[in-house]
Design a protein around this nucleic acid. Structure first.
Lengths: 239, 239
DNA sequence: CCACTTATGTCCGATATCGTACACACTTCA
DNA sequence: TGAAGTGTGTACGATATCGGACATAAGTGG
């Protein structure tokens, strides 16, 4: 499961030419991201970015009344902390570890130095940010027009794409926070999917039994986002 | 109303140091944007970006079934076509003129040349893009948690901020497309606001009577977005 | 083995929005 | 002046989700 840690387990790093990766790697530090850890809070100054290898991180917005929504999810295809190189330093969102794992941490200082070189790293970061824009926009659309059932399918697929295996460790309560619906709503939606034989649910453990089934049941939003990621960040090293 | 056209009517251009603006201005061309014109369609290759001066442009997502949602609105504080400098060339969204007016058009070729210089223009464009990210994210949250009444208030305020005067030319049908709700839903919400004395509605013409009242009635989403824009793009020239 | 906590399932009325149908008012133009 | 088109108001049942209360079930630790 945990093979030797390799920078190239993150697809952005993997897409860098060797010499760039070499230069950058000096300042990357492998860190463990436990479930629930907040990499940054709303409005707090960010000091580093993270390239996940096995962890999955949710970008969340929390409203004044405590209700929240996930606006994007980041795994080994991306980076957490785009506001550091976009120039804003902070964002109103929070970043919370949704699935424990590892990531490479990169200090903001070195990130900015590298970014200003205008080389492949800059290019990759900007393209990734555009993919993130798409994911957020599609989330907005999905929140407006699609049912909880469909959104749960989308969410499961997005998570699945960022994991090895077909099992997620995740309670319905947490999923409800991500989707911005009630916990009971997730129970019902999950029950529907389970009845249909697409997943198996057991106390904080979801096993996906029929991935094509999920894809058939979800809304177009999943495909749009996936296609856009593939287009913008293509042909990465596989392992 | 239509004073002499000036590059600095767009806040991004206004924020450029004179020498940069001078260099850039050679390739800017004033264009008129009529109501309803699409600056680009979903997935189509973009050839230029636009700096609105008096026009307002909506970024829309349209689903396969024809339903749509506005994910962001751009006026004289911003630029249309971020995917050109982000590197993706296209996006799945559409850009439609919501309020007729003028904009400066800048060819993608020159834009990219300027962007790679890494100067003030790059800096501004990236910060604006981060503000756009915030607007999209907040739209996603708002779509999930807030009532049509509140969203209409938010939408009116966002539009008002980008206009001179307190009157919008806009049918309920079009607003419904923006908000992703039924036209009847807008009729009802607008009726509520009119009863409360906040607006006056008459056949495609909305007059805002009580702006503070709208601000009191809308959700926090408006303030979050506005605050973030002010933080990221501060101290622009006023006129 | 027994409390205790956590996770999930179920039920019910309340509410917001939807979908549809249709009426009315204003404008334009023949 | 009358017809057509467009924009808005209203009504009503259908549906999805909410809000809250509560029941059940699985794990945990004494």
């Amino acid at each position: 499961m945990t093979a030797a840690h390799d920078l190239r387990q993150n697809q952005l790093l993997a897409a860098l030419p060797s010499e760039d990766l070499e230069r950058v790697s000096k300042n990357l530090k492998l860190v463990e991201l436990p479930l629930g850890e907040a990499l940054y809070e709303s409005g707090s100054r960010q000091r580093a970015v993270y390239f996940p290898t096995s962890a999955i991180v949710s970008l969340l917005y929390t409203l004044a009344d405590g209700s929240s929504v996930e606006i994007a999810v980041v795994g080994n295809e991306g980076i957490i902390g785009v506001s550091l190189f976009m120039g804003g330093e902070t964002t109103p969102s929070r970043a919370v570890v949704q699935s424990a794992g590892y990531a490479y941490r990169w200090s903001g200082k070195f990130l900015k130095e590298e970014f200003t070189l205008g080389g492949p790293m800059q290019h990759l970061l900007l393209r990734y940010t555009q993919a993130l824009l798409t994911q957020m926009a599609q989330t907005a659309v999905c929140n407006r027009h699609h049912s909880v059932d469909q959104q749960l399918c989308r969410w499961l697929l997005l998570s699945l794409d960022r994991l090895v295996g077909n099992e997620l460790v995740m309670t319905q309560e947490l999923i409800a926070n991500m989707l911005g619906v009630r916990r009971e709503g997730v129970t019902e939606a999950a029950g529907n999917l389970q009845s249909a034989g697409l997943i198996r649910y057991s106390r904080g453990r979801i096993t996906v039994l029929d991935r094509p089934g999920l894809e058939a049941r979800t809304c177009e939003c999943y495909a749009v986002v996936k296609k856009e990621f593939d287009r913008l960040l293509p042909a990465m090293t596989q392992y």
